[in-house]
Design a binder for these strands. Structure first.
Lengths: 290, 290
DNA sequence: TAAAATGATCTAAAAAAATTATAATTTTTC
DNA sequence: GAAAAATTATAATTTTTTTAGATCATTTTA
């Protein structure tokens, strides 16, 4: 049983006769006849009843064709996937996204992307801080984060800025001081984001290295801060609500401004799918949302 | 691109090497090599990278194989369907069910049937009264109804009886009479089930032919009766609730006892699926429920 | 370092599929 | 009702595709 035989079967039924099918398929009529005979021999039952002038499907043939049609459809789809891959479209895009990246910003991009390239799988690597390394170690194709580009191996483009403001719970002792000094802060634990990646020793606004509590994601950090466990910096976009309802208050420290950038490895060409994402952010779509 | 090539691809990946695949498939190694080369040529991209000793899938190859695996699975399923049909199993079973047939009775049968023969489609022909004709005109394989078998062409088996009791709404004028005569009944419309099938002139307990309202199904009939539109007969099992809550009351007429039977055409052999249904009812499973 | 294993490639053989021609039917047309 | 046209099946022949066997260049393993 070959897929070609199934396609011949389908063509016979849709065209109405063996001869019409043979013309549609650009084959001799006898080839179509032969194809069906061998298929019937292998299946062990007749697909067509030949008592009439024109062959008509048997009940078995009808049921068989129904399933075969699905198969042919899926086969065609596989052909499309092959075309897609042949044109150089990536089967998977790996996005390294910093924990500090505003997620709503991503949603629009991914929505449009997945409707345009349904064949491409998206893998989000939600790394904490070191999105650079994900690119350098070839774990990601594109990064969205605060890029340092230490070794100059990356191509980056700045999209917008994020202010990291120092906050603590309104119930925290620091909240009562007008402008706490470094001395004051030292008395309480600082909540910090920290990556598990070995080489990363960057301190994203960490004041003292000793009295700290490390967390892996922004959500946890916010809960800890709100709970009065300590103080720490948070991106402004992520705490608007909390400032408004006064569960968090800003301390007098100057905000640290981070530069949110899109990046990729200079030695690796992006395919059409990667280019789409790059352009989406680079050409402003991704800048609008903030 | 043929399905065979996809199967070879899959075997190579699962077995780990071209040679191992060739042994598993009982072919020469060169045949496997050739098969992959022609597939790659047609696809337009490499499935394997050959820089290492053992060929490893390219990212494209990995994505392609993923989809191809689904296709192979579906292909195997088609083979199973073919086996199923070859053994004589029916691709479809057409059941003519009378409107008077207690439906809960069917549910159990169909549940067990569809889990045992998932390949077979079930078509319920919910005819009003003349299930005989569905068999005689080859619109159904098995009938469940009140079978007359006029021409003696059917094989039937009686399963249980259904009492058709004369009822009307408690608010209907007839409800106030103790035992209404035919004279009394004549004054009000009778709600009757009637088939659209031409030849059917059987009167399922119809008292007078003139003052009648015909409906196509039992549900409508019940609603009309409850609404006080007229009087009519209903199967006892279908109005238990209504009698209890007194929205319908029985009139003094003697019930008509119908014989619920399973039937099939004597000239047509049942296949394994049809036999299952026949036996299910015949051997008592269908009799338990009533 | 030698032996074993692997994949690519070439050629000849085998198998499969397509074509042409023809026969046997059935339907259509006049 | 007869001739023409259309349709499928079959046989013989040709073409195409696939396979097998042998050899070579590599790489891995012992």
């Amino acid at each position: 049983m070959t897929l070609d035989q199934l396609q011949v079967l389908q063509t016979i039924v849709s065209s109405g006769s063996f001869r019409a099918a043979s013309q549609e398929l650009h084959r001799a009529q006898s080839a179509v006849s032969y194809s069906m005979r061998t298929l019937e021999d292998e299946l062990g039952f007749k697909l067509f009843s030949r008592d009439q002038y024109r062959p008509t499907l048997t009940p078995q043939g009808r049921a068989f064709l129904k399933k075969a049609t699905d198969l042919i459809f899926q086969f065609d789809e596989l052909g499309e996937t092959a075309e897609f891959l042949k044109r150089g479209h990536e089967p998977i895009i790996r996005l390294a996204v910093s924990a500090l990246w505003p997620l709503p910003n991503l949603v629009g991009a991914l929505k449009e992307f997945s409707s345009r390239f349904p064949q491409t799988e998206i893998k989000i690597i939600h790394d904490v801080l070191s999105t650079d390394e994900q690119l350098l170690e070839d774990h990601a194709d594109i990064s969205l984060g605060t890029i340092f580009n230490e070794k100059g191996l990356l191509i980056t483009e700045e999209l917008f800025t994020v202010d990291m403001v120092m906050v603590c719970s309104a119930k925290h002792p620091l909240a009562k001081l007008k402008k706490p000094t470094a001395e004051d802060l030292k008395k309480y634990p600082q909540i910090v984001l920290s990556s598990t990646v070995k080489s990363s020793d960057r301190s994203g606004g960490i004041v003292n290295q000793t009295n700290t509590i490390s967390v892996q994601d922004l959500q946890t950090k916010k809960v800890f801060l709100e709970g009065g466990l300590g103080y720490g910096r948070m991106p402004d976009f992520a705490i608007k609500e909390e400032i408004k309802k006064k569960s968090l208050v800003t301390l007098g420290q100057k905000p640290i401004t981070l530069h949110a950038s899109i990046g990729r490895h200079s030695a690796k060409e992006l395919g059409p799918c990667g280019k789409f994402i790059w352009d989406y952010f680079s050409r402003g779509q991704g800048k609008k949302l903030k």
